[in-house]
Amino acid sequence: MTALPQRGGGIAACDPRSLALAAAVLLSLVVASGSAYAHAVAEGDKGYIQEISGLHLLSFIYLGAKHMVTGYDHILFLLGVIFFLYRMQHIAIYVSLFAIGHSTTMLLGVYFNVGINSYIIDAIIGLSVVYKALDNISAFQRWLGFQPNTKVATLLFGFFHGFGLSTKIIEYEISPDGLVPNLLAFNVGVEIGQLLALGAILIVMSYWRLKPSFWRHAYSANVAMMTAGFVLTGYQIAGFFVSA
């Protein structure tokens, strides 16, 4: 994968404008994290899920797409994954690995009623954003002397993202009547939402990459992403101890 260019033996430095941009991005993410929970479902949708039974394929497709488009943790991770990917075949590979990962654990987790404490799994998901940002700024190469396999990491973190979703669905006690078809429909919706979110990200990134400011601000953007991941992780850890 492409990494940030080296300057004077180190990672590209930040100028004051880059730091201001990073601060603005982080502020918006912190505000978002204060008003929403990772993998949460709106109260109206939650009540709908708990009340219905039988096949509701279109409804679950809609709910899956809505969840992905509004899931800021998913979007942050996807942003990190495609940040330095330029070729569509490379983007397709990484996004497919992520989709395979979260689809597998989401479907199996709900079907076999395997859940993980939502605070713990969401904290891990926050760390997945941190990992990807560090990967993008070549931190592991400098610290460890080698580059971890990004494809394997994307698949593994996909598993965790899927468990985050399955844990929430289990909490809502979805009706066993029509469970499998509804889950499959929900997963189709998640993939549709992922494509919509990815398309929007690619449009913005493609435009930004044409500007000289991309390389000036790329480091700061990843620092902001990493910090947001730490904020999300800390938020979930605090929630875990408060709820204990």
Rank of each mutant, 00 (worst) to 15 (best):
A3W: 14
L4I: 15
L4R: 10
R7N: 14
G8A: 07
G9I: 03
A12R: 13
A13W: 09
R17C: 08
A23T: 15
A24I: 04
S28E: 11
A32L: 11
S35N: 09
H39E: 06
A42Y: 08
S53W: 00
L55K: 04
L55G: 02
L55I: 14
L57M: 11
L57G: 08
F60Q: 00
M68Y: 13
M68E: 11
G71E: 09
L76P: 01
M88P: 03
Q89V: 06
I93R: 15
Y94C: 00
V95L: 10
L97W: 01
H102I: 01
G109C: 03
G109L: 00
G109S: 07
Y111R: 10
V114M: 12
S118M: 10
I120R: 02
G126W: 09
L127Q: 01
Y131K: 05
A133I: 13
L134E: 03
D135I: 11
N136R: 05
S138Y: 12
A139L: 14
F140H: 06
F140P: 02
F140K: 06
R142K: 14
G145E: 12
F146H: 14
L156M: 14
F157R: 05
G158R: 01
F163V: 15
G164W: 13
G164H: 14
E171N: 15
I174H: 07
P176L: 12
L179P: 01
V180S: 09
L195R: 03
A200F: 14
I201Y: 10
S206I: 06
Y207D: 10
L210F: 08
S213G: 04
S213C: 05
S213E: 14
F214R: 00
V223K: 02
A224E: 04
M226H: 02
A228Y: 03
F230A: 13
V231R: 01
L232H: 11
L232K: 07
L232E: 05
Q236N: 15
S243P: 00
